[in-house]
């Protein structure tokens, strides 16, 4: 499904701010894998997701999605394979556009955009159906500007948009981190439900170790631009937060340092 081979990425090379974000990163995802990603500050989690999405190029290495080499592919072309939800609820939607306009944009991911009408009647009905499932009352607000929605509503909408046109791979970059605990839990439940129902392959970064254990069928831990732990199946189900912290200090030789993770343990 997804294959990351020997990927390196260094930011600000040759300056005092040099940061080796990814160092010989290797990862293979199977179809239907729902992988949670944890790691300390600056471990390279977000960089990994951004590399997959093509936000910036890799220094070396190769990334393939479903057998297609996407290493040098531009971000907007790669988008045909990917659904993305960002940490910042503002980032995944166009604030000045209506809910239905945003959804119509997402519905044409990876397709040519010509001079046909942007939203059809049939689509509008579909949008209503999908929004109804969110149980946020958005189905009656199709022509509301997305900028007027709360962070949780926007994240739920972004999630819907990211999965509307079935993505080969869903990338979730701490997408509940900016929400209050109750809303975060709801969005996370929704995420799990969508992935389960559609049988999606997904990579989800989280700072919450309990969530990382509870959700998904596989868990990876990153440190200094590499994957230091990769657990799946039965072994993952038996994990505890204490196990993870112990594994971290054993594998990295240091204490687990992630401000948010420590707060939400």
């Amino acid at each position: 499904m997804l294959e990351i081979k020997n990927v390196y990425k260094t930011f600000n090379k040759g300056t005092i701010n040099e940061k080796k974000a990814l160092q010989n990163l290797n990862l293979t995802l199977n179809d239907g894998d729902f992988v949670t990603v944890i790691g300390g500050n600056g471990a390279g989690k977000s960089t990994m997701l951004n590399m997959i999405a093509g936000v910036y190029p890799v220094d070396s290495g190769m990334i393939t999605i479903n057998g297609t080499d996407v290493t040098g592919m531009k971000e907007h072309i790669r988008a045909q394979f990917l659904g993305r939800v960002f940490q910042d609820p503002m980032m995944g939607t166009a604030a000045d556009m209506w809910i239905e306009e945003n959804m119509a944009l997402a519905g044409r991911r990876g397709q040519k955009r010509g001079l046909r009408w942007a939203i059809t009647h049939k689509e509008r009905e579909e949008f209503k159906e999908k929004l109804k499932e969110l149980e946020l009352g958005l189905e009656n607000r199709l022509s509301t500007k997305v900028g007027l929605l709360s962070g949780g509503q926007r994240q739920a909408l972004t999630l819907l948009m990211a999965t509307m046109k079935r993505p080969d791979l869903l990338l979730l970059d701490e997408h509940t981190a900016a929400l209050d605990p109750k809303t975060a839990a709801k969005v996370l439940e929704l995420t799990d439900k969508l992935i389960e129902e559609e049988g999606l392959t997904a990579l989800m970064i989280t700072h919450n170790m309990r969530d990382a254990i509870h959700y998904g069928n596989r868990l990876i831990m990153m440190n200094e631009g590499q994957i230091i732990l990769d657990v799946s199946g039965e072994e993952k189900k038996k994990l505890t937060v204490e196990d993870l912290l112990a594994a971290f200090s054993r594998l990295s030789g240091s204490e687990f340092a992630n401000d948010r993770a420590l707060l939400s343990k």
Binding site: E75, H76, L82, L105, R108, R109
Partner: peptide, 27 residues
Amino acid sequence: FFGTEMGHSLRATGCNASMARANGINT
């Protein structure tokens, strides 16, 4: 024009370029 698919993608480009690219729009 701004009611067509292309027109919508232009508006998205101006409104939120990252979102536009994530949805496959050549900004």
